[in-house]
Each structure stands twice: as structure tokens, then as C-alpha cells.
């Protein structure tokens, strides 16, 4: 999701503008010189200004300098991964973790913590290139361990759903 400065800058202009407009419509509070509308308006307009400057490429030079300093430190090794999918699709894989969290929110109550968590672990491990021989044991052990930790030590009950395990102390 590497976007050009023009795109992110114009997005910020739009966001700032909408925020300032939304702020300006808030009702003032009688007797208060600065109502609830002032802060969002100031922030929104400044954000729009910054977005405009970014879209015009102001400050780009500082980033280039930081990039030069960073070049010697290897942080990523994307090229090594031998993936057959085109790069546009490959980059969509980054959405797997947040998608799994949303999945958790909508499923955990019905399905229970252990099966939901096992599914999350399995998908994440496989997406990172694990073999089933590694992914399945992790998907079984990690949810159990985390459930016990939160239930026994921290006393946070997690939804039991379809798979209650009373014999190891999980309701």
C-alpha cells in the first residue's frame, strides 16, 4: 500500500476539510468563548494545509536524507520470498491480521474462544508460510495456554461457546 505523496496529501486535505466542516456544524455552548467546534476546525484546517503541502512535495528532501541513512540497515528482505502471485495481490496479504481480528469480534461469542482462536492461529501461521506440521500444534496449544492465562491468572472469562472444556478448568 505504498501510495504517492500526492494521493496521501490529497486524502489529508479531504479528511481535514470534512473534519473542519463537521466541527463547524457543532452547536456552540452558551457562555463559553471557545465551543466544541473550535478545536476540530483548527485541527481540520491545519491538517488540510499540511496535506496540501505534502501533495506539493514540500519536505520530501528530509525523507530522502533519512532514506539514505537507512539504506545500510537491512530491515526487509521481500525479494527473497518466492511467491508466484503478482505483487499487487501479494500485498493484500497484509490485510490478513486485521481481517482475522474483525472475524474474532463477530464470531467469538457464537463459536467460543478456543475454536475462533485456533482458526486465527492456523490462518496466520499458514499465511507466514508454516507447514501444517507446525501450524496445527501451535493452533491447538496457543489458544489453550492463552485461555488458561487469562482465566486463571487474570480472571478474564473468555466466551466458551461450542467447546467447553470443564476437565481442564475452562468453563
Amino acid at each position: 500500500m505504498h501510495l504517492s505523496d500526492r494521493v496521501t496529501g490529497l486524502f489529508l486535505v479531504a479528511l481535514g476539510g470534512v473534519a473542519a466542516y463537521g466541527g463547524s456544524r457543532l452547536p456552540p455552548v452558551p457562555g463559553q468563548q471557545i465551543g466544541p467546534e473550535v478545536f476540530p476546525m483548527v485541527v481540520g484546517l491545519s491538517l488540510a494545509l499540511c496535506g496540501g503541502l505534502i501533495a506539493l512535495g514540500v519536505g520530501r528532501r528530509y525523507e530522502d536524507e533519512a532514506d539514505v541513512a537507512m539504506v545500510s540497515t537491512p530491515v526487509e528482505g521481500t525479494s527473497a520470498s518466492a511467491d508466484l502471485l503478482p505483487s499487487r495481490w501479494r500485498e493484500l496479504r497484509v490485510l490478513i491480521p486485521p481481517a482475522l481480528l474483525i472475524f474474532y469480534v463477530y464470531v467469538v461469542e457464537a463459536l467460543g474462544f478456543l475454536p475462533t482462536a485456533a482458526a486465527i492461529v492456523l490462518v496466520t501461521a499458514l499465511a507466514l508460510g508454516a507447514r501444517l506440521r507446525l501450524a496445527i500444534p501451535v493452533a491447538i496449544v496457543a489458544p489453550l495456554a492463552i485461555n488458561l492465562l487469562f482465566l486463571k491468572l487474570l480472571r478474564v472469562p473468555l466466551p466458551s461457546g461450542l467447546l467447553p472444556l470443564p476437565w481442564i478448568g475452562l468453563p
Partner: peptide
Amino acid sequence: ASVMPVIVL
């Protein structure tokens, strides 16, 4: 692949 799934959880 065994560390990151635990982080998500």
C-alpha cells in the same frame, strides 16, 4: 510462523 499468530491472539 509460531510467534506471530500468538501476537495476533
